[in-house]
Computed example of a mutant assay.
Amino acid sequence: MIDAAKLFSVKGRVALVTGGSAGIGRMIAVGLAAAGARVYICARNAEKVAAVADDIPGDVIGIAADISTIDGIKALVAELSGREKALHVLVNNAGTLSDAAIDEFTESDWDGVLDLNLKSPFFLLQKLLPLLRAGGSAQRPASVINIGSVGALKVGPREVYAYQASKGAIHWLTKSLAKNLASDNITVNAIAPGFFESDMTVIKDNAMRKMVESMVPRGRTGLAEDMAGAAIYLASPAGSYVTGSVLPVEGGLSI
């Protein structure tokens, strides 16, 4: 007999959500904490990440960290390793974009996006492997959730070349990591969000809202519950046989 409550439970699990102080990262952190996980969130601004951690109900701890550099990644891993013996859920959410015409797109625009969106998730995962291996078992694997994008499934109207390239690469990196880490009892999946309102995706007026909603078959933008539900599924026993997948959470936008 299936126990639905246990099937989708993350109670007692330890999670790290990068970029967890705002946007999609915060949505996921709120959802995991509400479902009973201990959630660490990290962001560059120490005051902001501490305030957000205090504001989210549940067992939430804020850590100031700059994961755009290897030294910053090592410092975060050292801090987490000093607090926990195992990590069960890693959400690689921190990211950025540059929106510029092709004739004006600079090398620094490109490198900044690729470094944070692609290089950082790989090396953070690499440095966290001892904790993730300790957190996984054959019956209950540890879960890595990379945040991709509908922009890697469908080309949109904005000129965000490096962003789309980085997210396309994250989708394929997810598959490569999933294949190689399965024997370590670690699943690796990606969520490809559509239009969720955040600091990176701002709806400026009603005309823009109508335009965005007209592009989405479901007729609306994403809600926090949509994103939290997808992450909880992948981190719970319900998702333990899912690995190497890209889960679109975009209301049909990529169709």
Rank of each mutant, 00 (worst) to 15 (best):
V212T: 07
D55L: 05
D184Y: 03
V49A: 01
L125W: 01
A100T: 09
I67M: 08
I2Q: 04
V91G: 00
A238C: 07
K74V: 02
L177W: 05
D3N: 14
K119P: 11
G136W: 07
L118D: 01
H171V: 05
I41H: 01
M208F: 13
I73W: 04
A162G: 05
I147G: 03
G19C: 09
E104F: 11
V113A: 07
L181G: 00
Y163G: 08
A190T: 09
G135M: 08
P217N: 10
V249K: 08
Y241E: 02
V246C: 09
L234Q: 04
A29L: 08
I145E: 00
H88K: 08
E213S: 02
S245C: 11
G31P: 03
A182R: 05
V60Y: 01
I63C: 12
A228P: 10
I102A: 15
I28G: 02
I24E: 00
S236N: 11
A235P: 04
V77E: 08
G222R: 12
G31K: 02
E47N: 13
N93S: 10
I203F: 12
Q139A: 12
S9E: 13
A142C: 09
D111V: 11
I56R: 09
L234T: 10
R26I: 13
R44F: 14
A231S: 02
K167F: 09
R158W: 14
G23S: 05
I145D: 03
D111I: 08
N117E: 03
L87M: 06
K167H: 11
A46L: 01
G72H: 06
G252F: 07
I56G: 11
I24T: 08
V52F: 06
P217Q: 12
P57M: 00
D226E: 03
K179A: 14
G229W: 04
N146K: 04
A29M: 07
F105V: 04
A43E: 02
K154A: 10
K175P: 07
D59Y: 03
